[in-house]
Design a protein around this nucleic acid. Structure first.
Lengths: 218, 218
DNA sequence: TAAAAAAAGAACTAAAGTAGAACAAAATAG
DNA sequence: CTATTTTGTTCTACTTTAGTTCTTTTTTTA
């Protein structure tokens, strides 16, 4: 993806911006990556802008912004750092996309053909998560639309009022609001066209709690 | 992003604003950053406004507002968090979070604490984007709820049926479905409790098109 | 060893910073 | 409301700092 020099420069710019709040000049950068001329910096920056790692305000000095950081480090850099442990590195923002949910087969049944989905880190800060695509309109009353992607935090326990992934009779998974009443459980859709289901608690397993939602248009 | 002078001035303005509650004058600023003429302050402020760190209320004296501050971190923490940071932000890009939208002041006028927001790269692959927090329930009919974060693609043009950020009379920004009828424009809420507004096309400016939506629970 | 890529260097262009003054607009005092 | 003061804007001129472009040299590698 990036050459070692590009990577090193990008990291230096990012570090400087965060540490000092202001953007380094070309001369400062050339020292940081051990070049003796700033013409090389120019080429590196052009490459980083073209690859969408940096953005610069045209015709402005010291006006660079880091857009993103690379997913993969150049292999030479990795080897440099291999001494230091780097176990938790990749896969951090990737969570499994299990499939569709509403009425249908249990999510375990489709879990094997899962894709990975990138989500913002702050949505999945602690705990185990997975994603599901919503199918159907039983929850439109609280703004969960057909086609939305929901991010579910794994949990086998839920509080009254939580929106949960509920597995009924080990064969049907739905997203509903949950309410416990004695030995029974209510699964409450959020759409007047659907009816509340009242089930024996033994038949219902909570598989996770709704944590966030992502929707794309067009 | 910032030059050292710009940074120094921004910090001074921010500090003064927090300590005294009122905005320093140009003369006070020129002393604070060791200038002998306030023309330089003017240029610095223009640069900070252009870079979205400051906002000034037009035709007002001492009426500057700090929109955001560059994210700073002590170098020790940076080193410690470097690997983690990389993992967190891989595949993510930063886009500005301007503020709230619904019925109210124009988005330029809000954004008291415009932050940056991390979003998955594939949501904002091409084009310029910004984020807004939804305030109000005028769009619940299509699942856009109070408190949701929407990601808007910058555009001054929209097709019929698009959900857009519309600026009315340069002073009121809302998220609505747009429909053009001759020289008029309809702004269509998606909630029966609200009425469609029919306005002369000249009064309405499109500021962006709804691109995606993120919601977090709890 | 030749071709390609990276780096260095110099010359140039552009932007940022400095200063002062004249002026326009906003805030305030009377 | 008007006069006065405070504050902000604009202009010119200049210095310094920063960024771009080009050619030459060095290094890499096919």
């Amino acid at each position: 993806m990036l050459t070692p020099k590009q990577y090193k420069l990008l990291m230096f710019i990012n570090k400087t911006l965060k540490e000092t709040g202001c953007c380094p000049s070309f001369d400062e950068m050339k020292d940081a990556v051990n070049l003796k001329s700033k013409s090389g910096i120019h080429a590196l920056i052009e490459a980083l802008v073209e690859r969408n790692f940096l953005r610069k305000l045209p015709h402005k000095a010291r006006a660079l912004e880091v857009v993103r950081l690379p997913k993969l480090k150049p292999s030479s850099i990795i080897e440099e750092e291999k001494k230091k442990e780097e176990a938790l590195h990749s896969g951090m923002v990737e969570i499994p996309l299990y499939g569709k949910i509403a009425a249908g087969p249990p999510i375990e049944a489709i879990a094997d053909q899962s894709e990975q989905l990138s989500v913002p880190y702050d949505l999945v800060a602690s705990g185990q998560y997975y994603a599901l695509k919503i199918e159907g309109d039983s929850m439109v009353g609280i703004g969960i639309m057909d086609g939305d992607t929901v991010i579910i935090k794994k949990s086998d326990f839920a509080n009254n009022g939580d929106i949960v992934v509920a597995l009924v009779d080990d064969c049907e998974a739905t997203l509903k609001q949950i309410k416990k009443e004695g030995s029974e459980v209510l699964l409450i859709p959020k759409n007047d066209a659907y009816e509340v289901r009242r089930l024996d608690a033994k038949r219902v397993k909570v598989q996770g709690i709704l944590s966030s939602l992502i929707r794309t248009y067009h």
